[in-house]
């Protein structure tokens, strides 16, 4: 038996611990500490900022009061809609590609995964152009079909179309992920299982419901949770297409129809593009968002563990 002293183990682990402490823990505690101070642009240089207790939390929750909750709700809605749609689309396309009569499976698999491989900002900008009211291909098609030169949807300047627009763009770039996961899981289902069911007289729906779906579950559940987390934290796609808009009110605390959590936080961090930055407030918003995301991650971990247990 190999004998290693505790000191040796500690010595080997020390560099990693140091790096983690420096890169992860220090900024976290620094931010936490900052959220209790009045640090801003004006007192950074001479370090004259000081602790002000929970005033920042009072300010952020009162000033932004309603809108933080509102932002959380629209973000949650966006996540549910997006994840449901791309799980559905991904599964359908995977089953189509996996169908025994489909030829050129490799080609279809690669072709369908293409949207996923394009950098998201490129996709976002392409969609932004597609949605353009005057020159966007989508409205041009609508005008062609309806023979009405003034027809067209104001995609990005009305709340509901803008929301639908960012959902569509997100589905376009995210469903291939689900397709790949589903395809892999589908291919691991033994063909003789399905054949045996067919011989026993199971209908197509029954084979899907009672054989495929239970076998797909262990793969799909974690994928769904992962997608939900990434969608929850989605920033660049939404920001590039709508920048959180359309804004329907002069009230800055009335969030735009697509001002999801990360876009909202980004706007707060930028303090709307000002050089004057209230670091205390930003740190407070960051801590609050962290609490929300931490709770969600903990919840999702529970689900993932459940999924693992079902697999066993």
């Amino acid at each position: 038996m190999l004998r290693v002293s505790r000191m040796t183990i500690a010595a080997y682990l020390l560099p990693t611990f140091l790096v983690i402490a420096l890169i992860d823990l220090y900024p976290i505690f620094y931010t936490f500490n900052l959220s209790f101070t009045n640090k801003s642009t004006f007192n950074t240089l001479d370090n004259s900022y000081h602790y002000i207790g929970v005033k920042n939390y009072q300010y952020v929750l009162q000033q932004t009061g309603g809108d933080f909750v509102q932002v959380l709700l629209i973000t949650a809605f966006y996540v549910v809609v997006c994840v449901a749609l791309f799980a559905f689309l991904g599964l359908i396309t995977a089953m189509a590609v996996n169908h025994p009569r489909v030829r050129g499976k490799g080609f279809w698999g690669n072709a369908l995964i293409l949207p996923w491989t394009v950098p998201t900002f490129v996709t976002a900008l392409i969609w932004k152009f597609l949605y353009n009211y005057n020159f966007g291909p989508l409205n041009q098609i609508i005008r062609l079909v309806t023979h009405n030169a003034s027809a067209g949807i104001l995609w990005l300047d009305q709340p509901t179309p803008a929301f639908i627009a960012v959902v569509i763009a997100n589905i376009w770039m995210s469903y291939p992920f689900f397709m790949v996961i589903s395809l892999g899981a589908l291919q691991s289902i033994p063909a003789d299982l399905l054949e045996a069911a067919q011989v026993d007289g199971a209908s197509g729906w029954q084979r899907f419901r009672y054989i495929m779906l239970p076998l797909l579950r262990p793969a799909l559940l974690p994928a769904t949770i992962l997608s939900a987390i990434t969608t929850f934290q989605m920033f660049n796609t939404v920001y590039l297409i709508t920048a959180g808009g359309p804004f329907t009110s002069g009230n800055i605390n009335n969030p735009g129809a697509t001002e999801f959590l990360m876009v909202y936080m980004f706007d707060r961090i930028q303090n709307n593009g000002n050089f004057f930055v209230n670091y205390g407030h930003i740190a407070t918003v960051a801590v609050l968002v962290f609490i929300v995301l931490f709770a969600l991650t903990m919840m999702s971990l529970r689900f993932t563990n459940l999924a693992r247990e079902t697999k066993r």
Binding site: Q158, P246, G250, N251, I252, N272, N274
Partner: peptide
Amino acid sequence: WTPLQKALTAVWNGSETPQAALSQA
């Protein structure tokens, strides 16, 4: 910048009257 820009946008889109949007801004 931001409050006024949001007000201008809201009025341009017809979501709010200039009175309402600007007083909020």
